[in-house]
Structure formats: C-alpha cells, structure tokens
Simulated assay, not measured.
Amino acid sequence: WQFARMIDIARAKGHAEFASMQNYYNLVYREEEREMMPFCANDGIAVIPWSPMARGYLAGTGLGEKASTVRGRTDPFSVTLGLGSRQDEAIRKRVVETAEKLGTKPAVVALAWVLSKPTVTSPIIGASKPHHLADAVAATELKLDARTIAKLEEPYQSKAIAGHV
C-alpha cells in the first residue's frame, strides 16, 4: 500500500512516477506475488528483485555452522530475513536436486526460476567472483519447464513480511 500511495501522490502532484520496484523475491520468499508483482504488472512498472538467490542460501551454501561459505556462517542479515526454516531447507534441497538432475549449479537453477517469472524485468545479481557472471549467463539460457517450476515451488507456504520496514 505504501508504494501505491507514493505513486498516487506523484500523479496528483504531476511528479515523475516510479519506473521500477526493487523487491526482495526468490524461491524462499515469494510474498511479493500476492500484491506487489500484480500491481507492478498492471501499472507497467519494472520489477528488479534483489537477492534472487536468498543471499547465497539457494546457491546451495546453507546457513549456520555447517554452511560452506563464510557468508553462510556469519551473515546476520540472513537471520533478519528469517532464512533457514524447515520450509526453506525443503526448497533449497529441491534446488540442489534439480541442479544435479540438469547438470548445472544450484545458483543457476535459483536464478533461472526468478527469470521464469513474467513480471520480473531483471534481477539484481551481486557478483563478487568472475564465475558468478558465468552462472548468471547460464541462468538466462536455462528454461525451466512448468513441471520443474511446480516442484521447486511446491513446499512454499506464506511467511511473515521481510526485506523492508
């Protein structure tokens, strides 16, 4: 409602309107599908999700002491976002299994899922290593079929709003 209100104010005052929305959106956080994504599609507003791989979580790294990366072991914002629930783990495991089945990396599958959404214009990718760019390119080339998408999405259940205040 806050975004819609800002658009209404801009229109009423003759100001430039928003051209895009940067929202938190990925396989383990899909609350934006309820209202924000349809609103943006209806109003022709670009959707540019941040953290399409849930801070690396969907890349297969995990969280906490057993995580395979320093970020996964130490990132306090992952806790703020509520990552790592049983539901999230079920989804992450499906991403890893799908990647193995398709002969690619979990990061590629997670990003390909985001790119499969018609309302997504382009995700924000925090590439910190050269191979991250290669993964992003591979994700643009991977077309997930409807059955695979449904299997990845199936464990998801609504959760508390996260990613903004």
Rank of each mutant, 00 (worst) to 15 (best):
Q2T: 13
F3D: 06
A4P: 05
M6N: 15
I9V: 15
A10F: 11
A16W: 08
F18Y: 14
S20V: 14
Q22C: 10
Q22Y: 10
Y25Q: 04
N26D: 06
N26E: 01
Y29F: 13
Y29M: 11
E31Y: 12
E31K: 13
E32F: 02
E32C: 07
E33S: 10
E35D: 14
M36T: 13
F39I: 05
A41M: 10
N42A: 14
D43M: 09
D43A: 10
G44V: 04
V47K: 00
I48A: 01
P49H: 05
S51Y: 03
P52W: 00
P52Y: 00
M53C: 07
G56H: 02
G56T: 05
L58G: 01
L58Q: 00
L58V: 01
A59W: 01
G60H: 01
T61Y: 06
R71A: 05
R73N: 09
D75V: 10
D75K: 02
P76N: 07
P76G: 08
S78T: 03
S78L: 08
V79L: 13
V79H: 14
G84E: 05
G84C: 08
G84S: 07
D88Q: 01
E89Q: 14
E89M: 03
A90M: 11
A90V: 04
A90R: 12
R94D: 00
V96K: 07
E97R: 14
A99M: 03
G103R: 03
T104R: 05
V108Q: 04
V108C: 07
L111S: 01
L111P: 00
L111W: 04
W113P: 00
W113A: 02
L115C: 06
S116H: 11
K117P: 05
T119Q: 09
S122E: 04
S122L: 03
P123F: 01
P123T: 08
P123W: 01
A127H: 11
H131Y: 15
H131D: 15
A138F: 06
A139L: 10
A139F: 08
E141L: 15
E141S: 15
L144K: 09
A146L: 11
I149L: 13
A150F: 11
A150D: 15
K151S: 13
L152I: 10
L152Y: 03
L152T: 02
E154M: 11
E154Y: 10
K159T: 09
I161N: 10
G163A: 06
H164Q: 08
H164Y: 12
H164D: 14
V165I: 14
V165T: 14
